[in-house]
Design a protein around this nucleic acid. Sequence first.
DNA 1: GGAATTTTTTAGCGATGACTACAAAAATTT
DNA 2: AAATTTTTGTAGTCATCGCTAAAAAATTCC
Lengths: 198, 198
Amino acid sequence: MTTKISGARGRPRTFDVDRAIETAMGLFHARGYDAVGVAELSEALGIKPPSFYAAFGNKAGLFERVLERYATGDANVFLHARAQGGSTAEVLERTLMRAAQLYPTRNGAAGCLVIDGTRNSADPDARALASAAQRAGRDAVRDFIAIEAPDRAEEIADFVVITLFGMSAAARNGVGEAALRSFAEAAGRTLRREFGLT
Amino acid sequence: MTTKISGARGRPRTFDVDRAIETAMGLFHARGYDAVGVAELSEALGIKPPSFYAAFGNKAGLFERVLERYATGDANVFLHARAQGGSTAEVLERTLMRAAQLYPTRNGAAGCLVIDGTRNSADPDARALASAAQRAGRDAVRDFIAIEAPDRAEEIADFVVITLFGMSAAARNGVGEAALRSFAEAAGRTLRREFGLT
DNA sequence: GGAATTTTTTAGCGATGACTACAAAAATTT
DNA sequence: AAATTTTTGTAGTCATCGCTAAAAAATTCC
């Protein structure tokens, strides 16, 4: 159980860092950053706290890795919606519809980890990490909108992110996919009607 | 400083319970239930923990009093919007506009205490109290909508509360009144266009 | 095989969480 | 004034928080 591919010296790790990040992601997503302690994380990862700190530095260090993984995976609804192409309105509508599919409770986790993972957290480091990830996501949406509507990009981006905030909070409160879909569809129509997007 | 109106026996209280509830409301609203400890609450109230527990039973007991006060005051945006009369759409639009005015950060607190005060909380009692208050608010909105649109009351109530969720989360993230207003106005127009309310 | 390196485990650190036993203090009742 | 009732402050309780010192264990390099 200790065969390691890399030729690194020293005693090899007995756990998979990538799997550990996935496990931690599930816990943080389900219950929020503060509510998941290092003791519980270590237990879930099958390691002892010193191994945890040797691998990730501290709790916020693991959270940073988790957010990085989260933001580059399927959970980044805008990134994947844009990759499918189409008009500005089509991409934004698809973004909202992907959120409606993704946000409802699955394996105990609901909503968006970046949006709600550190809400009410008492840890400034964790909050800053989530804030940075959120700003990056918002900037990507705004820059994309600016291609078609540079003058109203900020305004439209606000509308999209507030819509996602509502859907994430609702999902965390147990609202189901059908209601989220209705909300997303209504918001999509508003993007065309109110902001004149095509 | 110990004159008491009531003819109750025993040593009189040296602090005002009503003022204590207001102070605690501000702290819970600004930072969330879990992030405000009993030690900090006691300090802010100018009392020692035993006086705290004698007066409120426990931390959740104080939170219950806080929520009761919050839900019967100006923070209950729907209650006050309905009291001003008007059509269904007018009352719901006014509800959203009041939220846009009320939710931005004031004295460190932002958004809605009932919606976001226990988000990610590890305390099941506190979560249940906020859930009950939230359900009561939603039921009031739904019952009001049902007078004009009984068949679509649930659907429209979902739309309204998800909109409020988004505005509360956005306000807690620092979004200002102007952006909240735009969002509320767009949602108000959706209520008329999509749901045919007058 | 011995030295060097890295991760592991054991066992705990100090700080803070919600909460409380107990007795003194301050009021009313008799 | 004495008894009763209630609140007060002192000084803790135990559990959990994030985190770590120290040494044993498991690998590679020479």
